[in-house]
Design a protein around this nucleic acid. Structure first.
Lengths: 130, 130
DNA sequence: CCGAATCCAGGCGGATACTG
DNA sequence: CAGTATCCGCCTGGATTCGG
């Protein structure tokens, strides 16, 4: 989805640069990883502490939690606030930018839920082919 | 984004099964790969032949073209029609299901384009931190 | 023309152990 | 509590070669 809509009308080949620097492709390559969508979903309602997130998601390793949070913070989608209390607490929350992303992301999620049965049916049909 | 919206209100930990079988997460894990968005974008307007696709995208290897097309076909998003002409021609086109996915996908693309500058700014800010 | 099969490197992601 | 550091398996994805 590099050129969003006009891409379909291209006559010249899509270059590597086109593909790489397309905002849409770049976005999906960042938030399309294994844990970003889940963390964005959790943070969509309220803020979380680090260990709270760690305990909230089964199967998510500490390492990947940190990496994913850093990636989202780097893109300005979440904020990281260190409270110098005792014990120390680091709070993660969605930024305005991150909040604005929720709408198109939820739209995609709704599509997936709506068409889940069709997807499963298509896969079953494909598997049944000789 | 496993539970789409209600996820934010969870009190119990998100289990591995929850995450794995969430339709939205499953969708992103499929169409969020390196070439699917681009191919869906190209096919959004008209159908393509195999070699035509191969030549249209610089940097896309034959192997990954086939694999990505199979993946999309398997999920019922595109159709594959073999024309027994001479020389033979295989035509790839979006299905109705694939077409219905365009809307939320384009919405995501529009968001990316709209907020591209903010994303770049956030990244520059992050890089400049001590 | 449209693939399938093989080989191989790079990066994602998990387990574990260690710091301020 | 909130990370960092190290090791390592696995899978994605590119290059190349072969077949129908």
């Amino acid at each position: 989805m590099p050129e969003v809509e006009p891409a379909a009308g291209v006559t010249s080949p899509v270059t590597v640069a086109d593909h790489q620097y397309c905002p849409a492709t770049a976005l999906l390559s960042r938030i399309g990883d294994k844990w970003s969508p889940l963390l964005l979903s959790l943070l969509s309602r309220r803020s979380y502490g680090f260990n709270e997130l760690d305990r909230s998601v089964e199967g998510l390793s500490r390492r990947m939690l940190v990496r994913t949070l850093r990636s989202l913070e780097r893109d300005g989608l979440i904020s990281r606030t260190v409270h110098p209390s005792v014990p120390p607490r680091t709070e993660y929350a969605l930024t305005d930018l991150g909040r604005s992303l929720q709408e198109p992301l939820f739209a995609l999620g709704r599509w997936a839920v709506t068409h889940e049965i069709e997807l499963l049916a298509a896969r079953a049909r494909f598997e049944a082919a000789p």
